[in-house]
Design a binder for these strands. Structure first.
Lengths: 196, 196
DNA sequence: GACACGGCTGAAACTGTTTTCAGGATACGG
DNA sequence: CCGTATCCTGAAAACAGTTTCAGCCGTGTC
């Protein structure tokens, strides 16, 4: 089935982006990762730009799925902390997803279409955070807080991916900031990573 | 003077990185921007990797100079706000510096040497913030707060550079977060950008 | 004036990578 | 069984970009 092949190719793309970054993105690396020929990439996606565009759409969709996958059956403040902390974790899939998303955000600085896609995904994530903030602390500036919290997580993600912080340190910083803003969860300390 | 030429080439590199990103970095673009030949780039820096390495060192040094340039004659809390907000501004040179720094951070995910350089620069900036936090609110966790504040600024910088926020909105978010953490400056609202 | 040296140019040579395409394999319908 | 369509390969052709280097120019020294 060709759809299955396209999905495998896009997953291979995300893996190559997460491993080497966009600056060293090579069709040959994707073909090897997916176990197909270079010609097949061109057959399905037209050319290198077409492949990259489809791959970055997949990275965006994957980021939105991760944001939606936060656990349900908890207090709003616990869900808020879990949602924010789901960006970090020792699971290689979480790291790969965060790295690919980080690359997409960096590329979005130079490309209006990518910037639009990143903006939509970020707005959806921020809206989810805003709702949880509004439930946790009614009457506060939930939108402003949601902006600050999601930006904080992106900044911490950068520190984690470059090795300046561990995932646990990043999660602790999120929780301490939530506590300092009066949004603290019932218990503190690093949580096990949310599966991706 | 060859030193003058090297400096012009490195400034041209930073400009090309800020305009097009690392993924589209071309020797020919740098030569054009600096008004020299491609051969001269190789004469001074060896090869493309040598040029990039020198350029990214310059980007790092430039980021550290920006952090050192925050104004002196103010209260600690005002200087803290100014230091954090100096990352955003309508001045094209500020934007270029932030973009180049953003590219360096993204590249640092994949390169240990660059990661080490980014880490040193970030630690220096974070230490400057920590000192100001300790003076503004003695007895609080200044190191943790400095980490959160600098990460917030990096996250907001990404939003600003991709067009999701204006510089003024980013600065307002920083000031509101400072206020929410009990580190507020004497007056609120967007400030004029600190010259770079 | 001759020579050495540093700074510099620009295009040929070279390398890396993408695009193209002839052709094979498989499945399906008539 | 044949024709058609789809999926796929892999290497030649094409293209993009870097590296190399012969040679020019200006300056300083003897």
């Amino acid at each position: 089935m060709a759809e299955d092949t396209r999905a495998r190719i896009l997953a291979a793309c995300a893996a190559v982006i997460a491993r080497s970054g966009l600056a060293r993105f090579r069709m040959s690396d994707v073909a090897r990762e997916a176990g197909v020929s270079i010609g097949l990439l061109a057959y399905h996606f037209g050319d290198r730009d077409g492949l990259l565009e489809a791959a970055l759409e997949e990275v965006t969709a994957s980021a939105m799925r991760r944001a939606d996958a936060a656990p349900e059956s908890r207090t709003a403040s616990a869900r808020l902390a879990a949602l924010l902390c789901s960006e970090f974790g020792d699971d290689p899939a979480i790291r790969a997803g965060s790295t690919a998303w980080n690359e997409l955000r960096a590329a979005a600085v130079f490309d209006r279409d990518r910037s639009a896609a990143v903006s939509r995904s970020t707005s959806a994530w921020q809206e989810a955070v805003r709702e949880l903030v509004a439930r946790t602390a009614p009457g506060t500036d939930a939108a402003g807080t949601a902006l600050a919290l999601t930006a904080l997580v992106e900044g911490l993600s950068g520190r984690w991916l470059t090795g300046q912080l561990t995932a646990a340190e990043a999660q602790t910083t999120v929780r301490r900031t939530l506590a300092a803003l009066g949004l603290g969860a019932e218990r503190n300390g690093p949580r096990p990573p949310v599966p991706s």
